[in-house]
Design a protein around this nucleic acid. Structure first.
Lengths: 200, 200
DNA sequence: TTTTATTGATTGATGAGTCAATCAAAAATA
DNA sequence: TATTTTTGATTGACTCATCAATCAATAAAA
């Protein structure tokens, strides 16, 4: 079977398998063998292409982040007004693929790993910044800058918090309810500023 | 040195050491040897008293939860009005001991472990329920029940989210700012209900 | 024939859990 | 009180399993 040009195919298969296995087991303490098995190759091949487990894991996170970024960009393009963009950013965070139990479990495992691996931490900081800045951009069109900062901070925290609560799978808040809760937070604050603005 | 009655002393020392080591390394993949070393005893003794690593970890989580509950009870006792109680619950979540990097890292590790261990998951569900119900009790005195439910849900999510964001140690939001953000969320929503109420 | 893809077998390290042995306090007995 | 027995506390050494990483060998293109 050895055809030439297998490298990108195998890399993708391994990264996808890694995400599956990590999500399934809810930990980064998964074996290279298991990942390789799921990808349909030997563990030795995984090492051949990635050099180390650490490297494979990092590529896996990168892949997850890339996916999220692409979805966000697409959603933002389709949105016209600031309100729509805001809604789009929130919506993407809770879209089915991101909010699936396995994906959440994987995110959680990555956050935990960030305590040890500087590179993983850096990647997650990129995610946090991106979320905050996407929210901020739209918010600044709707309220004063410093209020926008605070609201963006709060909304980002709420999104992450809904994730972590979802991971416990008790009193499961649905996708729509999560979106509603977050949008409610944002609009409620913007509204209040209007009232205060007219009152003052 | 073998005196009698060492068991409770050693158990506590081991549980405390476990929390320290887990917080420090940010993972449950810590060795019994290391925990024992920190507690000043041999790994064999840790096994003697706890039977297994899993069991020691569970006792450690229990200890953390107990601490949090006690602090909450104390804070609630000192609060008179519903507003004060609400504020107290929020404040306890962010009090220095809970919000310290090591403690947050430990929490994160436990959440991750909950994906695998049913017992760990159960314990964290207890925490989530308790937080929600503490918030709910005070909120119900301040607004209609179904609004209270939503606000409690949102506030709990925001608290957890601020934790997770804190764990990345980038753009570190301080304790006071976190409290302010959460209280702001709650009061803003209650206020809005009042406006709507008078307007309708 | 040279290069790329691929794997089985092996190695070396690590870590949980077990066990038999030791040591000293406490309790019982003389 | 002095001596023996019992029991709790404690550990070093060991076993057994797991796993990341390496390597030599093979097979099929180019």
């Amino acid at each position: 079977m050895p055809k030439v040009g297998m490298e990108p195919v195998r890399r993708k298969a391994l990264v996808d398998a890694a995400l599956r296995v990590i999500g399934d087991q809810g930990t980064l303490s998964v074996t290279m063998s298991e990942i390789a098995r799921q990808a349909g190759v030997s563990a030795a091949l995984a090492h051949h292409y990635f050099g180390s487990k650490e490297q494979l894991l990092i590529e896996t996170i990168r892949s997850l982040l890339r996916q999220l970024r692409d979805d966000t960009v697409t959603a933002l393009r389709a949105a016209a007004s600031a309100q729509e963009k805001l809604s789009a950013v929130i919506r993407v965070s809770f879209q089915a693929s991101q909010f699936a139990p396995d994906t959440i479990a994987a995110w959680l495992a990555f956050y935990s790993e960030a305590q040890r691996s500087e590179e993983v931490r850096r990647l997650l900081v990129v995610y946090a910044r991106r979320l905050r800045s996407n929210l901020l951009a739209s918010l600044k069109a709707l309220c004063p800058d410093d209020d926008a900062e605070r609201i963006a901070e709060g909304a980002a925290a709420m999104i992450d918090g809904l994730y972590i609560r979802q991971s416990l799978r008790s009193a499961p808040i649905g996708i729509e309810a999560s979106i509603a809760l977050t949008e409610d937070y944002v609009t409620s604050h913007i509204d209040r500023l209007k009232f205060q603005g007219t009152a003052a």
